[in-house]
């Protein structure tokens, strides 16, 4: 399968990030790696575009962030650890329902005629 590029991902990125964070908190790079692992290498996401999405979700209260507490073990700049909020959890359920409905409708339309 060809890689799924930015335009196709647009509109679904926030739902996917929420879903990844449901499995456990993580920093930006970690979230990206988990997205790529779950996408089995088919997601061709420009890595930087994750951060605007994270900031929007944080502003909307869907996720919360804190700075990494212990930088002594690791060289380099601090990272922010993101976690899902209760509001984010509700939004994730809504996103899943929307996605299922969307995929069902498009799936029926796109199916080859029998």
């Amino acid at each position: 399968m060809d890689n799924i590029h930015g335009n196709l991902l647009r509109g679904h990125l926030e739902g996917m990030v929420l879903s990844v964070l449901e499995r456990g908190e993580g920093h930006g790079y970690d979230i990206l790696k988990r997205l790529q692992d779950l996408g089995r290498g088919a997601l061709a996401l420009k890595e930087g575009s994750l951060y605007p999405a994270l900031y929007r979700m944080e502003e909307a209260g869907l996720i919360r962030a804190r700075w990494e507490s212990d930088t002594a073990k690791r060289r380099g700049p601090r990272r922010r650890i993101y976690a899902l909020t209760e509001k984010g959890r509700k939004e994730l359920s809504r996103s899943r329902e929307t996605w299922r409905a969307f995929a069902g409708i498009i799936g029926r339309i796109m199916e080859e005629p029998t």
Binding site: H27, G28, Y29, L32, E47, G48, Y51, Y55, G76, P77, R78, R79, R80
Partner: peptide, 27 residues
């Protein structure tokens, strides 16, 4: 170069700077 022209508070821009730098360093 990415962050400087953004119109936002210093607090927000510093957050962006540090986080993007952390990401870029890992990459």
């Amino acid at each position: 170069r990415i962050v400087r022209p953004i119109r936002a508070s210093v607090l927000r821009k510093n957050k962006m700077r540090e986080e993007l730098l952390a990401h870029l360093s890992s990459a």
